[in-house]
Amino acid sequence: MQPGDLIASDLGARPAQPTDLAAAWAILSEVMDPEVPVVSVVDLGIVRDLDWQAGHLHVVVTPTYSGCPATEVIESDIREALELAGFKAPQLERKLTPAWTTDWISASGRERLRAYGIAPPEGSSSKRSLLGESPQVLCPQCGSAHTEVLSEFGSTACKALYRCVDCREPFDYFKCI
């Protein structure tokens, strides 16, 4: 909730237009994640739903994890992009359940991660690692499957640091969660 929401929540309220939701999805597909600026909040699956409520666009957002330090920045970027596009006072709802999972990353988002030099999550968010199973992580530079873990934590908590045994390049791996 933003300052003034309770007082002026109906400011700019209007009936939904047939193209509003498609336009909003298109706008949000251009809002990039601040930690990985080549993948949008839509491709990451952070934007869960859009609908029209009480004359305003209603946006459901699920952060990648409840303690993500970028959550407020992402929500601010979403709000700003929508307002600049003419959506008055969009209503954002932070929804923590069900929890975000890497399964929600789109195919194009995974490809953009790879092209950026981050190995996208392999497999699904199953708990295989609890059973001692490690994912086969391909090097985003050369495509080799001969990779090794250097650290369980990479540039952010949701990534691990790997190195390719063949090309010797270090890279982040977006962990399955």
Rank of each mutant, 00 (worst) to 15 (best):
E122N: 04
S144W: 09
P18N: 03
L21Q: 05
A107Q: 12
G67W: 07
Q136E: 13
K159Y: 13
P15D: 13
G55R: 07
L21F: 00
F171M: 08
L96E: 10
C176Q: 13
I78Q: 06
E30W: 00
S66R: 12
S66T: 15
E83I: 03
A85Q: 03
Q136R: 12
P140K: 02
R79G: 02
I105G: 03
R14D: 03
V59M: 03
K95T: 08
P135Q: 09
G117V: 05
D166M: 07
W100C: 03
R14A: 12
I27Y: 06
D10G: 03
L28W: 10
E152Y: 10
D166P: 07
A145E: 13
K175Q: 12
G45D: 01
T97D: 02
D103P: 06
G45V: 02
F87G: 04
K159L: 12
A23V: 11
A22E: 15
P15C: 02
L11Y: 12
P90Q: 05
V59Y: 09
E80C: 08
P98L: 00
A99C: 01
S126C: 14
A157D: 11
T19N: 11
G86C: 05
M32P: 01
V41A: 01
R112L: 10
A107R: 07
Q136F: 00
V41W: 03
I105D: 03
P37W: 10
E30I: 00
A89T: 09
K175M: 04
A8R: 13
K88Y: 02
S151T: 09
P170Q: 15
H146P: 00
C142T: 12
S151H: 15
E152A: 14
I118F: 04
H56T: 01
I177K: 08
A16D: 00
R79K: 13
E111L: 12
V39C: 05
D10L: 13
A22T: 14
E133G: 01
K95E: 14
